[in-house]
Every structure is written in C-alpha cells, then in structure tokens.
C-alpha cells in the first residue's frame, strides 16, 4: 500500500498514541537518553519530525531502532509527549512492511514438515524480524 509521507506520520501518531503537539521543545528527552550517541536522529528531533510530517528519512535511517526502550524520556517528559512510543510505532511500521519478514506464511508448513521439533516461538519471532 502506497502512503504519502504525511499519511505515514499520521499512522505513527495513531499507533504510538503520542500527542506530539504537546511538545514544548525543552529537550529533556534528549538530555535523558542513554542511547543518544547511537542514533542519527535524537528523541526531540523525531518528535518534531513526526509533528511536521517529515518521517521518510526517519524511517529509512535504521539507527532510530537502537532506542533501548528504557522509557526514561517518557518518564521525565514534563508534557507527557512519550517519545519512546514514537520509536515503538516506527518498529511496528517496519514489521508491517510486506516482504520484509524473514519468511512468508506460505513457507511455514514446509518448515514444520522438515523439522517438527521447531519451537512455535521461533516461528513467531522469525515473522517479527525483518530484513532491510
């Protein structure tokens, strides 16, 4: 399904439940972030990017997923913006991308036939993982 950049941004807002308009640009999220140096874009930036509907670059850049999900930014944000939930939404979007999974459902019966010892959890997590 083709989406415009703006539509993707709306989807991120919807999935994350984060009200990015509440941000007062204090930067406490970025001040608090232990993975700050790992990411090309930082918590305060991806909140602004979503607010402005400029998310393509954010989605293309894989480093945002290096977020530790420690939720320190959510805990300390004085305005209740929840930046970490934006990252969670980006992860969900990536998972939803067709063709990004390690294998497709059609391959599953063959896999089980080949190895009926395969744990169910391994199959589920394989779906969740994606190639880029």
């Amino acid at each position: 399904m083709h989406q415009t950049e703006k539509e993707t941004a709306e989807l991120i807002k919807q999935i994350s439940g984060s009200d990015v308009k509440k941000c007062m640009k204090c930067g406490k999220c970025s001040a608090t972030c232990p993975a700050y140096g790992e990411m090309k874009f930082h918590p305060h930036q991806f909140v602004t990017m979503v607010a402005h509907g400029k998310v393509d670059e954010l989605l293309r850049d894989g480093t945002v997923t290096r977020c530790l999900s420690c939720f320190a930014c959510v805990e300390r944000c004085p305005r209740g913006v929840e930046p970490a939930n934006v990252v969670a939404a980006i992860r969900v979007l990536a998972e939803r991308e067709q063709g990004g999974s390690n294998f497709v459902p059609d391959e599953v019966p063959a896999l089980i036939a080949a190895d009926n010892e395969i744990p169910q959890q391994a199959l589920v997590s394989a779906f969740r993982r994606y190639r880029k």
Binding site: K25, G27, K28, S30, A31, T32, Y36, H42, A72
Partner: peptide
Amino acid sequence: IKGQVGKVWEEDGHLVVRGVDLIANEQ
C-alpha cells in the same frame, strides 16, 4: 544553553550533569 538536563549524579566528589544543547544538537 538552550536545552534541559536529564540527569544529575555524584561521581568522585563532584557532580555530573547530563544535558542537551538543542542548538548544537548534541548531548
């Protein structure tokens, strides 16, 4: 410095402040 402080802690007899400089875009 335009930005906020995320954490303050004590280390070797002094305080350490981790903050962000939003204009320079660096922690």
